[in-house]
């Protein structure tokens, strides 16, 4: 997981480029600098890669150059006028949506189970004693080890992939949520009790909001694992989606499609993480103010 420190980091950095053009506003200049800094490395790598493989490929024809990958990607996305039987022509969006839908379903299941369980573990001694040991026992089993189990129980169907995604995302969410609920400031709970709040009200109106920062940390880690899980599941346990295409294209020697597929996964992971980050900023506005003040 890369942790975005974008706007915060730029605030804290000494203004090295402050003598630059004053035509742009300082905020716009900061953003522009951020974008330029961000693309330096990928652009350099792609340029070197293209240059090194001037015959169209590297490593004795195994690795296609970026222009070929880009071409394969375009055909995969928009189709070509050629034969209609090419599985890598115009099927990009459909496969992307298969994967995204599985991630969405699995991640949602993970949230719906992990948040209540995590709050219970962090908040209630009996729940903690009952649930936490089992969670900690199952947690070291990697989702890849669950693959045979998943295929045996759910078959080569969507449910198997959703199960693996939900399971993978469950652990970081439950662990972080429990930590958040456990770390709640004692006087906040006392204040709520003093004002006549019952146990249920305290859970809903004090413990849950106080745990939200930790919950969001768990969500971001969990989403990363969800993308890993969907690719693993589709490579083995389902016959569609980006993970399926990845393995399938490899078998027929289409490394250009393999790389386009990898890039697609990376972009989707990045975008979905940004979406969580945006929701977090909106939900935790009170916390953002806090960190800027201190």
């Amino acid at each position: 997981m890369s942790i975005s420190t974008g706007p915060i980091a730029s605030r804290q950095q000494p203004s090295v480029f402050s003598s630059a053009s004053s035509v742009l506003s300082s905020a716009a200049r900061r953003n522009l600098r951020q974008v330029l800094l961000a693309i330096v490395l990928p652009v350099t790598v792609i340029a070197l890669w293209q240059w090194a493989g001037n015959g169209g490929s590297l490593f004795g024809g195994v690795l296609p150059t970026p222009d070929r990958v880009w071409h394969a990607w375009k055909v995969w996305a928009f189709g070509s006028a050629g034969l209609g039987l090419n599985p890598y022509s115009g099927t990009w969006l459909a496969n992307l949506l298969f994967s995204a839908e599985r991630v969405g379903k699995g991640f949602l299941v993970a949230i719906l189970v992990a948040v209540p369980v995590g709050v219970a573990i962090g908040w209630n001694r009996i729940a903690s004693g009952t649930l936490d040991p089992t969670v900690q026992l199952l947690r070291p089993i990697p989702i890849t080890a669950w693959l045979p189990f998943s295929i045996a129980v759910f078959g080569i169907r969507d449910m198997g992939a959703v199960f693996l995604i939900a399971l993978g995302a469950f652990y970081p969410i439950v662990v972080n949520t429990a930590q958040g609920a456990r770390d709640i400031e004692r006087n906040l709970v006392r204040a709520a009790m003093m004002m006549g709040a019952g146990r249920w009200t305290i859970l809903r109106r004090v413990v849950l909001p106080a745990s939200l920062p930790a919950i969001f940390t768990g969500l971001r880690i969990g989403l990363g694992i969800a993308w890993t899980a969907v690719i693993v599941a589709e490579m083995i346990a389902v016959k569609s989606g980006l993970g399926y295409v990845l393995w399938d294209a490899y078998y027929v020697g289409r490394m250009d499609v393999v790389i386009a597929d990898m890039a697609t996964i990376g972009l989707l992971g990045l975008i979905s993480d940004r979406v969580i980050l945006l929701i977090e900023r909106w939900v935790l506005a009170w916390r953002r103010l806090q960190s800027f003040h201190s």
């Binding site: 400031e185 006087n187 906040l188 006392r190 204040a191 709520a192 009790m193 003093m194 004002m195 006549g196 709040a197 109106r205 004090v206 909001p209 106080a210 939200l212 009170w286 916390r287 806090q290």
Partner: peptide
């Protein structure tokens, strides 16, 4: 604890996610 004994804490112990009005009407 109960609302017949109102406690004022040293660090106020307001709910940081609620605004002033929401904090005051919480009880």
């Amino acid at each position: 604890p109960g609302p017949d004994r109102g406690v004022v804490f040293q660090e106020a112990a307001l709910f940081p996610w609620l605004n002033v009005w929401q904090n005051v009407i919480f009880g």
